[in-house]
Design a protein around this nucleic acid. Structure first.
Length: 395
DNA sequence: AATCCACAGGAAGATTAGGATA
DNA sequence: TATCCTAATCTTCCTGTGGATT
């Protein structure tokens, strides 16, 4: 049930598989398939479909004796033009002695090496660029989409995958038109489709009868609310199963799903907090401190920007960090809000001005987060910091 | 109805970091 | 390696505003 598992059957994606296969089929006749741009939210099966069709393409290629290459790359990892070309080149080179090294070659030398190798093989190559929006600079794309005119015997076509529809807006118009020769949109799954996907998966992943009737509908429904993300649904089910197993219960029940949902959310939040820039951490810590103080005083009063900023200034002095302006901290606060760590909304207190009301989100008020915050070096200086100001006088 | 607090949040310029380029 | 560029971050300065209080 892990996201890396590649299933044999992709429920409710038959149409997409067919469409994509139809576009790529010319490759088997030695012709150039159109370039394709694929758009769809996370967990809608883009990568799975493309990989699946790619596998089929290779299989058919072998059967018919046509030379077809299928290169899949994730641009989050292979994110520069050089590494992209290096990767492609090494796919064609099978002797160890003339691998293209990680660094050292001029980019255009790698580029011409790629061309030479391709031409020698006289093959059609399909290059998949997953998360293409993470690729730095559009020169790489420009070169790739243009490479066909410089090849004599070989052909290249590019499949770009992205979950950011606005991505194409920033592209060089030439690249844009060439990449978008053909485009596909993957729509989110609805709750019923998600159920089918889950059912298909548990057949191989779980023993019969270890799962309560209503667990699957619940998982499906919960993740359908979140833009129909199949990955999320599978995660939910997997974590539920793990929780059930750990507590030595023979059956997965609804309550495990609820627990799993909390756990996933907490994991997400702790991860976000861990990677927060230091200034944001300080702001968040200020909110923590104020929150704690309030709780001690028995009030559940929400905080205001001004209060948070005052504490933050103190913390900066203690940690010898330079202090940002209030203007900037309001931005940081609203970023924290967007990340779902806190809840911030603008309210007006009449005569007492307009401010943002800040609260810890329920999922993030836990000790775990505090621990994560405190493992940062800068919190050494704060280990035994006590807030000095008295409890607030305002009501 | 008028006032006025305590900020929100836009605009534009300054600074900085990291990557590209010569 | 030096330097140039760009995008992100941050500051300065600013105008705007919901509604309790006068």
């Amino acid at each position: 049930m892990r996201p890396t598992y590649m299933p044999e059957i992709l429920p409710h994606r038959e149409k997409e598989i067919n469409d994509l296969a139809n576009v790529l089929v010319p490759a088997l006749k030695g012709e150039t398939p159109s370039n394709i741009f694929i758009y769809g939210k996370t967990g809608t099966g883009k990568t799975a479909v493309v990989k699946f069709v790619g596998k089929e393409l290779l299989k058919k290629g072998e059967e018919t004796g046509k030379k077809v290459n299928f290169i899949y790359m994730n641009c989050e990892i292979v994110d520069t033009q050089y590494r992209l070309l290096q990767n492609i080149a090494n796919r064609f080179i099978h002797e160890w002695n003339d691998h293209v090294p990680f660094t050292g070659w001029p980019t255009d030398e790698v580029y011409s090496k790629v061309k030479v190798m391709m031409d020698k093989e006289k093959s059609v190559t399909v290059i998949v660029l997953d998360e293409i929006d993470k690729l730095k600079g559009d020169e790489a794309l420009y070169n790739l989409t243009r490479i066909n005119s410089e090849l004599d015997n070989a052909r290249v076509s590019v499949i770009g995958i992205s979950n950011d529809l606005k991505f194409t807006d920033f592209l060089d118009p030439r690249v844009k038109s060439s990449l978008g020769e053909e485009s596909m949109i993957f729509y989110p799954y609805d709750a019923e489709q998600l159920q089918d996907i889950l059912r298909a998966r548990i057949k191989t992943a779980l023993k019969r009868g270890v799962i309560d009737e209503d667990v699957i509908p619940l998982c499906a429904a919960l993740s359908a609310q979140e833009h129909g993300d199949a990955r999320r649904a599978l995660d939910l089910l997997r974590v539920s199963a793990e929780l059930a197993e750990r507590s030595k219960v023979p059956k997965i029940t609804k309550s495990h799903v609820r627990l799993a949902q909390n756990k996933i959310e907490l994991d997400r939040v702790t991860e976000v907090v861990r990677t927060l820039p230091n200034q944001s951490k300080l702001v968040l810590y200020s909110i923590f401190l104020l929150n704690k103080q309030n709780k001690k005083a028995g009030t559940t009063q929400a905080l205001t920007t001004g209060e948070v900023y005052d504490v933050y200034k103190e913390l900066c002095k203690k940690t010898r960090y330079n202090c940002l302006t209030q203007r900037r901290t309001t931005d940081l606060i609203s970023e924290l809000d967007m990340l779902g760590i806190i809840t911030a909304r603008v309210i007006s207190k009449g005569r007492h001005g307009r401010t943002t009301e800040i609260q810890m989100s329920s999922s993030s008020s836990s000790k775990e987060l505090l621990t994560v915050l405190q493992e940062d070096d800068m919190f050494k200086d704060l280990a035994n910091y006590k807030m000095k100001g008295q409890a607030r006088l305002t009501v």
